[in-house]
């Protein structure tokens, strides 16, 4: 951990999520038909936080769920079989809704590609948008985020670690210098 530095502290994460919540409300004109789907593990936690904020701001309770993308990954054969995350769709499903996918870090875009495939098997949203706490660049697919907490220029050798209160006991985003693995 010696070669890491915090790029976002707890108050920064709070402010970023608050701004994203406002942006979602603005872009979707009140979030009336929005469904927030987080990609486990930390994306699901962030989706819940965004849902709470949107309810505080406008009093609308929007459906929040999670979507596991493990079975749709394109790199399954590079590692031993991975344990699955939890998929939980809102009771009314996602047909005809605006789905906002939520992830902690946007990097190659391959996770989002897998999430789009998974969504395709679960229903037909009218639109899909993407919110991410950190966009660290180095896209390998034509994918971009609609809502970004922080654009973080990184080297490919560096790692971005996201810690969230609910899972890790504290809020922080660390940039870990290359070579450490």
């Amino acid at each position: 951990m010696s070669d890491s530095r915090a790029v976002l502290e707890a108050p920064d994460i709070h402010r970023a999520l608050t701004r994203i919540a406002h942006e979602i409300l603005e872009r979707t004109k009140g979030a009336g038909d929005v469904v927030l789907l987080g990609i486990p593990t930390r994306g699901a936690t962030l989706a819940r936080r965004l849902g709470d904020r949107i309810r505080q701001f406008e009093g609308v309770k929007i459906p929040v769920g999670s979507i596991d993308i493990t079975m749709y990954r394109d790199d399954l054969r590079l590692k031993p079989a991975r344990p699955l995350g939890h998929t939980e769709l809102p009771p009314d499903g996602i047909d005809g809704r605006v789905v906002v996918l939520v992830d902690d870090v946007l990097y190659s875009g391959r996770t989002v590609r897998a999430a789009l495939d998974a969504l395709n098997d679960l229903g037909r949203p009218t639109a899909v948008q993407l919110a991410t706490l950190v966009d660290r660049g180095h896209r390998e697919l034509p994918i971009r985020a609609d809502y970004v907490g922080k654009n973080l220029p990184t080297a490919k050798s560096e790692k971005v670690r996201v810690y969230l209160e609910e899972i890790d006991g504290r809020d922080a985003v660390l940039l870990v210098k290359g070579g450490a693995q």
């Binding site: 596991d68 749709y72 399954l76 699955l84 998929t87 098997d121």
Partner: peptide
Amino acid sequence: TAEELASVSERSIKKLPT
């Protein structure tokens, strides 16, 4: 793993590309 896969049998497209 089975617990997570159980929901696949309940949805309309009962298939995963894995």
